[in-house]
């Protein structure tokens, strides 16, 4: 619980200073339903709200070890619900610098807050131009709309 309060304060402070310029501009999506939010060369990665709702109750999350070097679209872990196991792929290349430790005991954070408290890992990007290949919000929503039709 204490973590949440800290993280909330942390978040809102940043929102104030960064929001108008880079905050929105650097959130991108993959066709395999990950999101990445990049700031100062470091990307925070999670799965989208659409993905968590399709999966149902998440019961187990496997996150990558900090220090791991990963290639774009490399497998970096998995998210499991009662009905399915879903492999997790990195949207970009780089070095894993942190994994969300809370998910080990609270995998349901992915359902409750997929695009915020339920983030999966942070990665130091080795090539920021890779972001250009990813989907923006409008394109991602278009894709999700097609899938659920």
């Amino acid at each position: 619980m204490s973590f949440r309060i800290i993280s909330k304060g942390f978040f809102s402070k940043r929102m104030f200073s960064v929001l108008p310029t880079r905050f929105y501009a650097t959130k991108k999506y993959t066709a395999s339903h990950e999101w990445i939010e990049v700031e100062n060369g470091v990307g925070t990665v999670g799965i989208t709200d659409h993905a968590q709702s399709a999966l149902g109750d998440v019961v187990y999350v496997e996150t990558p070890e900090p220090g791991t070097e990963i290639e774009i679209e490399g497998q970096v872990g998995a998210v499991e619900s009662v009905k399915a196991a879903s492999d997790l792929y990195s949207p970009v290349s780089g070095e894993i610098i942190e994994a969300n430790a809370l998910l080990a005991t609270k995998p349901k954070l992915i359902n409750q807050s997929p695009e915020k408290d339920g983030w999966l890992f942070k990665i130091k990007l080795s090539d920021e131009t890779e972001l250009d290949q990813l989907l923006d919000e409008a394109k991602y929503n278009e894709l999700v709309g097609e899938e659920s039709e």
Binding site: H33, I47, L55, A85, Y89, E147, E149
Partner: peptide, 19 residues
């Protein structure tokens, strides 16, 4: 994340259903 799992096949079967 859904490149190799059952949800994708769910999506596929859904689109098959409505096609």
């Amino acid at each position: 994340m859904f490149q190799r799992n059952k949800i994708l096949s769910l999506n596929r079967s859904l689109s098959r259903l409505y096609s």
